[in-house]
Design a protein around this nucleic acid. Structure first.
Lengths: 275, 275
DNA sequence: CGAAATTTTGAGTTCACTCAAGGATGGTGG
DNA sequence: CCACCATCCTTGAGTGAACTCAAAATTTCG
């Protein structure tokens, strides 16, 4: 199963500092014992694959259901519409679980696309079921992981529904910068973004032409530059301001205080439930 | 805990036909044994509450974390933005699990709002943890449930990002009609929609004024009428056509065939992974 | 019954779209 | 290795859909 590209990392006994990224990430979501970590690291090492070029994962391997963890590179999830067109609904960075929810669906709505050079670790559905019994802490971490993914998609919805074109694009860049930083993929203010501009545009609910215009604007303003497959963040603070970005939705455990406006008939704190 | 309003249903031994709606619904998502069903029905009967008026659930009861199942009436989930404003991101019908993912978050991003007359059954986080050991089938069903909720939010994203105002509104009405029908809440082509028009508008990524104009248009076209808190679907087929609606994303197990267009460098069926 | 929150409607404006064409890029095959 | 071709990016001009702002009508709730 091991192939040409992936020769480093993921040998047998790993020093904790070189744990597979998914283990590190899930460990931040729920306390994992050394045994949990070792078991999960081993599970991740069973079926590792590297793709040379952009690849669509769809019910390959005779339909044996798998859960993919991204070890390096990029992956995206597209919703497939009735007419066959695709809409970008999520993207994955190293360490991310890819389309966790699709594991429980008989047929899928979506396709997982691996960008050129991506390396993934597959875990079979059977092994996933086993985890429920043997390593519940891992499952608990995966619930949190699902919650974070869901939270991100929710934010994309709010982004498209409430903000202007400039805000939307700035917000998405800010989110990606934040997530890349957390994954150690933000180097010198730059990160990879190996997707077509048209997909990026539609994720923001914009036409490619208009998105391109706004990109030029943000470039001229000195906030970000997206050239080829690399995004350079020149002024991160301004970018986050421009997108009204706050990372609260990316952190499962933290949330800043907010004033909640009262509405007609609102009853605070479930007062009316107390009897 | 029982209170004035909720006197019917949910006594002790229930005939299977009068199972609580959440049991019926989860039973459609994963095979549940008679013991699973009985246990879950009993768990749901422990803490039932009815609200008289619109109520906001936020960390009430001293922060004891709970999972709410909607037994009757309406509930909505709002994302709370940095400036305190709220954005509708999900709505729940009888039988639905409310904001399942928030159970795993330390602090929440969102608020759950119960509309006047709603009846919910709370399950404590502890009991939820217990289920992992004692009734894994219920947890499996909840995974599917989370997947369906996630799929709906994803569709809202696509709705707002890709469709015109008329299509968005028609699509959301079509979705609600479909879900209400599945929950037995579509009576004579009518269903309840007890939320302000402004929330509905923002869920569609529209301003209230413009949404109102489109609502008038749809009414004049004879597709739907939304008056007070009741939506009357006059021509469902046309409504679904107008919204390019397909219920594929609401059914965890089914998916219609689609043509998937090839792109530059796409490799079908993971061919490149086979070595 | 009065106050506050919604819904409805209008007029004018703007942001984002459509349509179109030229330039750049990268993969592919000769 | 180079030329070709498909895809993607870039830019322009004109249009239209959805927005803003404002005010009146209606409903709901206290």
């Amino acid at each position: 199963m091991e192939n040409s590209f992936s020769s480093n990392a993921l040998g047998d006994e790993l020093p904790p500092s070189e744990e597979p990224l998914p283990v590190v990430k899930l460990g931040r979501y729920a306390p994992l014992s050394a045994r949990d970590r070792q078991f999960f690291a081993r599970a991740l090492s069973l079926d590792i694959r590297t793709v040379k070029v952009r690849s669509v994962v769809q019910e390959a391997f005779g339909g044996a259901r798998k859960l993919a963890f991204l070890l390096s590179g990029w992956a995206c999830c597209y919703r497939v519409l009735g007419d066959g067109r695709q809409h970008l609904v999520a993207c994955y960075l190293p360490g991310d679980t890819c389309d966790l929810h699709s594991l429980t669906a008989q047929r899928r709505n979506t396709v997982l696309v691996l960008m050129a050079g991506a390396r993934i670790a597959n875990i079979s559905a059977d092994l996933f079921d086993t985890l429920h019994q043997s390593h519940p802490a891992i499952i608990r971490a995966l619930w949190v992981d699902a919650h974070v993914s869901s939270s991100i998609e929710r934010e994309w919805l709010v982004n498209v529904a409430r903000r202007s074109a400039r805000q939307r694009i700035a917000h998405l860049f800010a989110e990606l910068a934040w997530r890349c930083e957390a994954a150690g993929e933000l180097i010198d203010g730059r990160f990879q973004l190996p997707i077509p501009q048209s997909d990026f545009a539609s994720a923001c609910g914009l036409t490619p032409s208009h998105a391109n215009r706004i990109l030029r604007l943000l470039h001229e303003e000195g906030l970000v530059t997206w050239s080829k497959t690399v995004v350079s963040v020149h002024d991160r603070a301004s970018l986050e301001t421009a997108g009204t970005f706050s990372p609260d939705y990316l952190e499962p455990g933290r949330l800043h205080a907010t004033r909640t406006p009262r509405r007609r008939g609102d009853v605070a704190e479930m007062a009316s439930l107390e009897i």
